[in-house]
Design a protein around this nucleic acid. Structure first.
Lengths: 209, 209
DNA sequence: AGCGAAAGGGATGATGCCATCCCTTTTTTC
DNA sequence: GAAAAAAGGGATGGCATCATCCCTTTCGCT
């Protein structure tokens, strides 16, 4: 079984990252640690295949480059056999280079870290050895979460929201079908159902949805 | 239907916050915006009951107190009828006071923002008018996410992980039953099933789990 | 020895979601 | 105007989860 450890102090972000990792592997166990101490303690008990690190941890100065390097160094030293990916809110190319030099395999900015990029980063790492995804702001349409939607309906709404302009809906449905391993017709059905639910409750949807 | 808007630039965090809001209301629509522009645009189209704001947005300096205040001010002005809650990674009491003065109803630090505190904060606001939750580091046991667990099983594992020391398991089961509105025996069953799955895959669990 | 707590497993019906197939009507596009 | 795309709805079986009830065994404590 695949084992991963996520080291991040913000609870919601840690859980979100853990879910991202979990969604990227068939059979896996993901453990989350809030502090460096807790992470080191986990390394003493178990080996891990993958470690995700946010260098801004309690007890360290997140604005100090030296502190950030120390955090990542300590974790890499304590888990030499694992793949290490750094995830940070304040990302830049020079820091990416620094972490690469000390042994990290990936560097991802939190802004622009969309669900699903994790698999892409892992692919990059396995082929090229290193992967960088810097932050970018590229949102043209808001996100939607409606309590009346089923998980599947949420998924297709999300995919349609983030679609590239110039694609016909039919093409999107095909794409959804591929990604979810279902029939394109079913994807179409889910989307129409979902949108109908959203509109029923008096919300004016943006064009494109 | 209850309407909420979450303004936060980090994708995963925004989606996590949106899920927190969605989980706090029976029938609700939650919209997420990455930038101030997108948020303002949403205000022009719809009214909202609740707005969640991270003041560190693209185009502003997250370390500048003035910039942070401007962001929150603009949003409050654009949605005067809504309840406003500020969520930030770099939280402190003085900033909480500043945002309170300009009309925010809540102030939450990201570190220590556990799933479920949202409802508590909303309760505080409706009774006392204002609520502050500053960051704190209090994790003694790691988080667990295993791909083989059902959602229910995950929930009970999480609750057991965060239990107060000195409580008997039976009491925890009662508590789980209350929170999930199920029988305590069922909660016990779910937990034992979940733990069995975790241990089957060779992972040594920490004491207390 | 007795008792409660905990571990461990098996069987059950109800329910909601998944995925598919079917159909009609309206709008868009060439 | 014809054809394709899109909107909209209805019915279906299969299946995983939910929630409950049942049972036995082990351990720790008094």
């Amino acid at each position: 079984m695949f084992r991963a450890l996520v080291v991040e102090d913000q609870n919601l972000m840690r859980l979100a990252l853990m879910d991202q990792v979990r969604a990227s592997f068939e059979n896996c166990l993901v453990i989350g640690a809030e502090t460096l101490e807790l992470a080191i303690h986990e390394f003493e008990k178990n080996d891990f295949d993958l470690v995700v690190i946010d260098p801004g941890l309690p007890g360290f100065d997140p604005t100090s480059q030296a502190d950030r390097v120390v955090v990542v160094e300590k974790i890499i030293e304590a888990s030499p056999s694992a793949i290490h990916i750094v995830v940070t809110g304040s990302d830049n190319t020079s820091e990416a280079a620094i972490f690469r030099r000390i042994g990290a395999s990936g560097y991802i900015g939190k802004t622009g870290f969309e669900p699903g990029v994790f698999s892409d980063v892992l692919d990059d790492i396995s082929t090229k050895g290193f992967s960088v995804r810097l932050s970018r702001v590229a949102m043209t349409i808001p996100d939607y979460r409606y309590s009346g939607l089923t998980p599947r309906e949420q998924e297709v709404i999300d995919m349609m929201s983030h679609r590239e302009p110039g694609m016909t809906r039919k093409q999107i449905y095909e794409l959804m079908g591929e990604r979810l391993s279902i029939d394109a017709g079913s994807a179409e059905k889910y989307f129409k159902q979902a949108r109908a639910k959203l509109m029923k409750h008096g919300h004016r949807l943006p064009q494109g949805l």
